[in-house]
Amino acid sequence: SKICLVCGDEASGCHYGVVTCGSCKVFFKRAVEGQHNYLCAGRNDCIIDKIRRKNCPACRLQKCLQAGMNLGARKS
């Protein structure tokens, strides 16, 4: 099975251009559409994995963007 390129959980498919799990898919959509201005309490290098993905939305969003997630991406 495929793994989420953001948190490493089991992926549910290709979302916004990137193979991700459902949790990261929903997080990314809400983060971008809600125009959240997340700030990292650390050094913008928090570990984002299945267990810690909820700890720092700033670093999670950064990881989504680095993976290439794009709200305008067509479903493939």
Results as ranks from 00 to 15, higher is better:
29 K>C: 05
45 D>V: 08
6 V>K: 01
5 L>I: 07
68 G>V: 02
6 V>T: 05
51 I>W: 04
35 Q>L: 07
28 F>R: 00
10 E>F: 05
51 I>T: 13
40 C>E: 01
75 K>W: 13
1 S>C: 11
68 G>A: 02
42 G>P: 02
22 G>Q: 04
11 A>G: 10
22 G>P: 09
33 E>W: 06
46 C>N: 00
36 H>T: 12
33 E>K: 15
12 S>M: 15
41 A>N: 08
33 E>N: 07
23 S>W: 04
64 C>H: 01
11 A>V: 03
65 L>I: 05
32 V>F: 12
27 F>H: 02
43 R>C: 05
66 Q>T: 09
64 C>K: 00
13 G>N: 15
35 Q>D: 15
43 R>N: 12
44 N>Q: 10
48 I>E: 13
25 K>H: 05
11 A>W: 03
52 R>P: 08
36 H>N: 13
47 I>A: 11
9 D>E: 07
5 L>G: 06
64 C>D: 01
72 G>Q: 15
32 V>E: 13
20 T>M: 04
16 Y>M: 07
45 D>L: 07
32 V>Y: 06
41 A>Y: 13
8 G>T: 08
19 V>M: 15
8 G>V: 02
76 S>F: 06
51 I>R: 12
66 Q>K: 11
25 K>N: 15
17 G>W: 04
16 Y>D: 11
22 G>I: 03
22 G>V: 07
62 Q>N: 15
29 K>T: 12
12 S>V: 06
53 R>S: 07
12 S>K: 05
46 C>E: 00
46 C>R: 01
51 I>N: 06
1 S>N: 14
27 F>A: 02
55 N>C: 11
76 S>V: 04
16 Y>V: 14
3 I>D: 09
9 D>F: 04
31 A>L: 02
61 L>D: 01
59 C>K: 00
23 S>Y: 10
75 K>S: 15
43 R>L: 09
67 A>Q: 04
12 S>R: 13
36 H>W: 04
17 G>Q: 08
5 L>P: 08
16 Y>K: 08
6 V>S: 02
49 D>T: 13
55 N>K: 14
22 G>E: 12
5 L>C: 08
15 H>P: 08
44 N>I: 02
46 C>I: 01
54 K>E: 10
72 G>H: 15
37 N>V: 14
56 C>Y: 02
14 C>I: 11
22 G>Y: 03
11 A>D: 05
34 G>M: 06
13 G>S: 11
23 S>G: 13
21 C>L: 01
17 G>A: 06
3 I>K: 04
59 C>R: 01
76 S>Y: 08
53 R>Q: 09
41 A>K: 05
1 S>D: 02
37 N>L: 08
55 N>H: 10
47 I>D: 08
54 K>S: 14
10 E>V: 10
68 G>P: 02
75 K>R: 09
47 I>P: 14
32 V>G: 03
69 M>G: 03
17 G>N: 05
13 G>M: 11
38 Y>I: 08
57 P>H: 13
36 H>S: 14
14 C>V: 13
63 K>T: 11
44 N>A: 12
38 Y>P: 10
45 D>C: 13
23 S>E: 13
15 H>M: 09
63 K>E: 04
42 G>F: 10
55 N>M: 07
6 V>Y: 02
39 L>P: 08
16 Y>A: 10
